[in-house]
């Protein structure tokens, strides 16, 4: 089976371009990436026919010399499916823009939590080291140290409370755009609830 090199090269370039676009944040770019990469893969499917022959018609063409019609059918199916998905993604990007003013894909909740935790723990260790390094901690240093620790704990707790409400970092924005709870937003974040007893020990 011989395959046209230009077809393969085009497919490779399209897939690469699409791949890079899909790694970006905004949904519209991801959509463009998906469309471009999808076209590249369709070319790849077409290249599975091997060298081109005559058009695959039932009558009037010698049967032995026609192109394999099956990859064309597969590619057509894929094109139709890509069309539907494109329409859906576009609608979703628009809706996302309507809701948040941007169509960026947000961070994973879990990732954000882990990063925050790592940050807070790192800062705490640093603080502790600094504090321990002082031979005779003054009352002032002690007070500052305690305040810093409190601040870190509050940060974790605020994040947990936020998560309990199931909103991510930019949750206020949705809240705002979705409307209706203006007074809530104006008043800042809702007050924190007392820590439930089951969550202790998280801040160390």
């Amino acid at each position: 089976m011989t395959v046209s090199a230009s077809l393969l090269a085009t497919a490779a370039v399209l897939c690469a371009v699409g791949g890079i676009l899909m790694l970006t944040r905004p949904l519209t770019r991801i959509l463009l990436g998906a469309v471009i990469a999808g076209n590249g893969i369709n070319l790849l499917v077409l290249s599975a026919t091997g060298s081109a022959g005559r058009e695959p018609l039932l009558y009037g063409v010698e049967l032995g010399r026609v192109t394999d019609p099956l990859p064309q059918a597969i590619a057509l199916t894929a094109i139709v499916i890509t069309l539907a998905t494109t329409a859906f993604l576009l609608a979703m990007a628009y809706r996302s823009h309507q809701l948040t003013g941007t169509d960026e894909v947000h961070d994973d909740d879990e990732d954000r939590r882990i990063v925050l935790r790592a940050e807070v723990l790192g800062e705490r260790d640093e603080l502790r080291e600094q504090y321990r390094a002082e031979a005779e901690p003054s009352a002032e240093a002690q007070r500052r140290y305690r305040a810093e620790r409190r601040r870190l704990r509050a940060r974790l707790r605020a994040d947990r409370a936020l998560q309990a409400r199931g909103r991510d970092a930019s949750g206020d924005l949705w809240h705002d755009v979705l409307g209706a709870d203006a007074e809530d937003y104006a008043a800042g974040r809702p007050t924190e609830r007392p820590e439930p007893p089951t969550n202790r020990g998280d801040t160390g």
Binding site: M1, I41, L44, V45, P71, I74, M92, S96, V105, H106
Partner: peptide
């Protein structure tokens, strides 16, 4: 929408991979 965008992108990606695998198999 937030949850959906992750899901849709992942699904799209795996579909592309699947189609590539089909092309390879057929070839």
């Amino acid at each position: 929408i937030r949850a959906g965008s992750t899901y849709v992108i992942i699904s799209l990606f795996s579909s592309m991979l699947f189609l590539t695998a089909i092309a390879m198999t057929y070839a």
